[in-house]
């Protein structure tokens, strides 16, 4: 037997010719059917992922069926670890079109369109109930306003948990959409940011804040009460009486008016 004959016989083994392929097709169809049934029992939820370019740098976004589950700055030191954690929880499939939709929203937001971010958010990567509650509270801080770690801790009913609030901001899996950049220090300085202070500045400036080289909010900031819908100058006696958890720092009076607030009758902000 020649080597070529032997190779041919191997190719046709075991049933010979096209019959082998038919048999393979049948087995494959049955195998797929059984596997799909078995996979249903262990399947992870799916997430569409992709990379986008934005004015604040390249971002990796993941979107589950419930909403955006992760937005990561690709140059972050922990990116590989975060991608691994995401793969443990979701079946990832690259989908550039879906990612680009998120990218469009972020670009419009950074260009000053405060109603651009419309995607829903999925907080399933957030491990604790407290962290989820804190991040949900944060989504109620509108663009053009900021709060402090202390005020946010009060707003979620844990006034002594400022440090835990800070840690929650640091591990926020959906920055920009869950606006952890809108949390600053009580002294008015902008504080840190997971993606770097430069990005926090870019985001706050895009939302209407004027921030100088000292990295502090400018004089034009007003304090808005979330329940009375009244805004005051920072030194107003009425503002001092308000609980920190109920107030927001708004970039300026016109933005406060845009949020449906009216000026205080005591301090009469411009």
């Amino acid at each position: 037997m020649t080597t070529m004959d032997f190779e041919k016989e191997l190719r046709e083994f075991p049933t010979g010719g096209s019959g082998d392929e038919t048999m393979l097709d049948l087995a494959l169809a049955e195998g797929r059917r059984r596997l799909s049934r078995a996979l249903k029992r262990v399947a992870r939820p799916r997430a569409r992922v992709g990379e986008i370019d934005t004015p604040v740098g390249p971002l990796f976004v993941a979107e589950s069926e419930r909403g955006i589950v992760a937005v990561r700055f690709i140059d972050g030191a922990d990116f590989d670890r975060e991608l691994h954690a995401l793969r443990e929880r979701f079946d990832l499939a690259e989908n550039r079109a879906a990612a680009n939709k998120v990218g469009d929203e972020i670009r419009r937001h950074l260009a000053g369109d405060n109603s651009a971010l419309t995607h829903r958010i999925d907080l399933s990567l957030v491990p604790s109930e407290f962290q989820q509650r804190t991040l949900r509270a944060l989504t109620r801080i509108p663009p053009g306003a900021v709060t402090t770690y202390r005020a946010l801790a009060e707003a979620v009913g844990a006034p002594d948990a400022q440090r835990a609030v800070g840690n929650t901001m640091a591990s926020n899996p959906v920055p920009i959409y869950v606006p952890c950049h809108r949390v600053i220090r009580s002294d008015g300085s902008i504080g840190n940011y997971g993606g770097g202070v430069e990005r926090k500045l870019a985001l706050l400036r895009a939302e209407g804040f004027r921030i100088g080289d000292a990295l502090k909010l400018s004089e034009g900031v007003v304090l808005g009460h979330r329940e009375t819908r009244i805004f005051c100058r920072p030194g107003c006696s009425a503002a001092r009486r308000a609980k920190p958890g109920k107030t927001l720092m708004v970039a300026d009076s016109s933005l406060a008016r845009g949020m449906g607030m009216r000026p205080c009758g005591i301090c009469r902000p411009a």
Binding site: L28, R32, D53, P55, G57, D75, L92, G196, R199
Partner: peptide
């Protein structure tokens, strides 16, 4: 700020892996 420090590699989806290799595995 917009510079790319890290190239990311998004792994091929499991579904795609299955589609590509199921026949030869069988």
């Amino acid at each position: 700020m917009a510079s790319r420090a890290t190239e990311i590699k998004i792994p091929v989806s499991f579904e795609e892996a299955l589609r590509r290799h199921e026949r030869e595995i069988m």
